[in-house]
């Protein structure tokens, strides 16, 4: 059960009409290390992981949907008023032919999202370590997109999202530690 709050997690501002950035940003929308993959990965792993870390997966998985919504808003703002010529120049001609201005869950190269991007191994250590890796890959993706962008307002939002990846990675590392720790166990030597 979810409760929806009708506002973005962080305000999304876009200061330049640059559909090319939208093309790059969809990597975080429907890419392997994107927010959709993250949300579905974590929320799906919850059922087969020790009780102590289920809540963490619920919280982070839910927040990833809030990030997905921010990315969607950025992509929408960057493309909504673009002319077909501008979209063609940005490499979005094929997308326009297929989807008009509609968003699609593809990566930056136009490859549709697939469930094979996510894993659920059922082994708590393997799953949490995959989650840590996913957060670091998403952090890196944000860095590469910031590197290509000259839009300070857009980058402000991307910086926020990158910071959240850092916090999530930290929490997953702590979850791994909780699963590994022998604290509270009587050890007999």
């Amino acid at each position: 059960m979810w409760i929806y709050e009708k506002k973005l997690q962080y305000p999304v501002r876009v200061s330049t009409c640059n559909p090319m950035l939208a093309k790059f940003l969809v990597e975080q929308y429907g890419g392997a290390d994107g927010e959709l993959s993250a949300a579905l990965r974590y929320l799906n792993q919850r059922y087969t992981i020790p009780d102590k870390v289920i809540g963490l997966l619920t919280d982070i998985g839910t927040e990833e949907f809030a990030h997905l919504e921010m990315i969607a808003t950025m992509v929408y703002k960057l493309t909504k008023d673009a002319t077909p010529e501008q979209l063609i120049a940005a490499g979005l001609g094929p997308h326009y032919a297929n989807n008009d201005k509609a968003l699609m869950y593809t990566n930056a190269e136009g490859v549709p999202w697939t469930a094979s991007y996510i894993q659920a191994k059922g082994d708590p250590i393997a799953d949490i370590y995959e989650d840590i890796a996913a957060e670091e890959k998403a952090r890196a993706t944000y860095q590469w997109i910031i590197n290509m962008s000259d839009d300070p307002d857009l980058n402000d939002g991307l910086r926020f999202l990158r910071e959240r990846e850092i916090v999530h990675s930290q929490r997953f590392r702590e979850a791994a530690q909780i699963l590994i720790d022998e604290r509270g166990k009587k050890k007999i030597f």
Partner: peptide
């Protein structure tokens, strides 16, 4: 604004074009 409550975890990243 920072994206984290914790000062030690704050690590803003800037691109070369901004």
């Amino acid at each position: 604004r920072a994206g984290t409550l914790w000062k030690v975890l704050y690590d803003p990243y800037f691109g070369p074009y901004e």
